[in-house]
Design a protein around this nucleic acid. Structure first.
Lengths: 208, 208
DNA sequence: TAGATTGTTAATCGATTAACAATC
DNA sequence: TAGATTGTTAATCGATTAACAATC
């Protein structure tokens, strides 16, 4: 209830959210924990446990009100707040994330691009001019940026993280395959495609 | 030892691997579990436990032989085998993954692109012609493809998965935000950026 | 030998799941 | 009322961590 929600539960909430939005679109009023569980591949009990960390309650014998729970999740997950992000490292992955329309649905907009390569600065991607990293310091307060995306090579990542921290960013989404040293009050979410690939890779190898 | 390695352990192995390769580059012969742990943000005991699922042993009082353990991990993770992938859904995310050079390092090469949008088929990305999805059936055995990447919209994902299964693909990396129904012998790794974003988002929201 | 670090066992921690009274 | 499904507690499961004898 008032406990801290575990990360695994938190990650399932957007899945439930999508299922609820689908239900709303189909004019279905109530969705059961069993149905929500199927969308995420977990048992109904898990869903109920996950939702027990929220304030919203279901109706015994009926299920959860799709519209109301979806709204609640929007608030809880912060989907409606406009989260503004700066992206540093405009390589292929960086470009893709800028052009990826999927983030907007979850309230994230990338509003500024940075790169230390002079061959890149000045150019434009998705209508945004690529700025030198030293411009970050002013841009963060000015544009009200609260998230930093690192899509630069591993060697450059720590230096970029330092610049982000210095500029006042408190949440970093790190796509570079390296561990970042940051102060305790800065949150880092590492996204390591190689780690994920390892699981697939190991499976494929075993398979023959 | 002969137990099945847990997924969390498996995901840490590529991180240790990178640290070992760095050590090799710097001509360091031995690396301790403590050093490996620092690169992954876990305690030394965790590293030793993770490595206990492999055959390779460390030397008490000394550490792990960097070159030898790196080699072993390459084999265990299947990094050296050329894993060939077909990518279906050549939108922004799809394009990015095709152009992303990071995969090659882990033995994955995307060798064929598919899309059902006739406006896209025939065009070329990274030297690969985009083919209609119905061409998958022949391409998989012909090109020895063993992994399928789905970067299409959610609505199209299940149909694409069906085509992949029918063509003989046994491992699917699904970037579409939906759960796929597949036979038991097909492995699906879901990659849900919205789930990951939820963790960041929730943190940012709390933060103010 | 003394110091360092391993491999492994046992203890701990935290997440998942089963079970069921409460309730719509 | 009968049937369905919730919220929550307790049991289970599995991963992490501490501890330490073994060993280089």
């Amino acid at each position: 209830m008032n406990e801290h929600i575990p990360a695994p539960s938190l990650k399932r909430l957007p899945i439930y959210y999508r299922r609820l939005k689908d239900a709303v679109k189909e004019k279905i009023t109530y969705v059961s924990s069993d149905e929500l569980g199927q969308s995420a591949g977990v048992p109904a009990a898990q869903v109920r446990k996950d939702l027990s960390y929220l304030e919203e309650k279901g109706r015994p014998g009926v299920g959860y009100n799709a519209e109301s729970l979806a709204k609640h999740l929007e608030g809880f997950l912060g989907l409606t707040e406009d989260k503004k992000a700066a992206l540093i490292g405009v390589g292929n992955l960086g470009k893709a994330l800028v052009l990826y329309p999927g983030f907007a649905r979850y309230g994230l907009s990338i509003v500024a691009l940075f790169d230390n390569d002079p061959a890149k600065t000045g150019h434009t991607v998705a209508g945004l001019e690529i700025l030198p990293v030293k411009a970050l310091m002013n841009a963060v307060p000015q544009m009200d940026i609260n998230i930093g995306l690192i899509t630069a090579p591993a060697q450059a990542a720590q230096e970029i993280a330092n610049a982000m921290v210095e500029s006042g960013i408190k949440a970093i989404w790190n796509f570079a395959p390296t561990r970042l040293e940051v102060p305790d009050d800065v949150f880092v979410k590492n996204e390591d495609l190689a780690s994920e690939l390892a699981v697939l890779s190991h499976y494929v190898k075993r398979d023959r």
